[in-house]
């Protein structure tokens, strides 16, 4: 049947939810979120918001793991509510939760980039410059090039992640067009705020 033919690479990369959803996606997605948190902890990279990645303080490992889970839950719950409001179909919650978790898998690659020694050296130099504006720091050009290339790749990966998040919402709730895009953008902004609040309380616990 046509539905199963022409399994193109682009569909697999940008809309894998045509093939995978539910508990299977949830298992793989949660694995990716936790692994990204674990890798992030090695370079103190925090996923401190639905769309955020920052290098920050050293905290216990469970905080790194919980950050990714909180980001995923905040967006999933907001989109679940929006989906229930605008969708004309009775969709399964597990599909939205699972595909939203799997949509975060590019964060695995994002967490790897700050492990580069040149990236870390340049980040350190930048922080030193910011904390001591009067001082002069001799920037290493190759380090700077690697840093900016890394940041560019991270931004591209983030765009890919957002595209996956939208596809997850569209496929799981069967919503399309302007209404779907509008509620997704609103959901993303709302979830970003919610995740910041959740992470504030999380850091208080730590």
């Amino acid at each position: 049947m046509e539905l199963n033919n022409n399994r193109k690479l682009t569909t697999t990369l940008f809309n894998p939810f045509v093939y995978i959803a539910g508990a299977q996606a949830l298992g793989l997605g949660l694995g990716a979120i936790l692994l990204a948190g674990l890798i992030g902890s090695l370079s103190n990279t925090h996923f401190d918001g639905v769309l955020d990645t920052h290098t920050g303080l050293h905290v216990p490992l469970w905080v790194f793991l919980a950050e990714g889970l909180a980001d995923w839950l905040c967006l999933s719950l907001v989109l679940l509510i929006f989906g229930k409001i605008i969708s004309n179909t009775a969709f399964r919650t597990i599909d939205l939760l699972g595909t939203q978790a799997l949509a975060r898998w590019p964060s695995l690659f994002i967490s790897l980039i700050p492990l580069l020694p040149a990236f870390q050296r340049f980040s350190h130099d930048l922080v030193a410059q910011l904390t001591n504006p009067g001082g002069t720091i001799a920037y290493n050009t190759p380090d700077a090039s690697i840093f900016f290339a890394g940041v560019t790749i991270m931004l591209l990966l983030l765009c890919w992640e957002v595209a996956l998040m939208y596809k997850s919402y569209s496929v799981s709730c069967n919503v399309k067009g302007g209404k779907a895009i509008g509620t997704f953008i609103a959901g993303l902004l709302l979830a970003e705020i919610l995740s910041k609040i959740a992470l504030y309380w999380l850091l208080k616990l730590a």
Binding site: M1, L3, N4, F17, V18, Y19, I20, A21, G22, A25, N88, T89, F91, R92, D95, T99, V171, S172, N174
Partner: peptide, 13 residues
């Protein structure tokens, strides 16, 4: 069809 559950449900819809 070797596709996900929501894909089939969306097709049916």
């Amino acid at each position: 069809l070797k596709v996900s559950y929501p894909t089939v449900r969306n097709r049916l819809d």
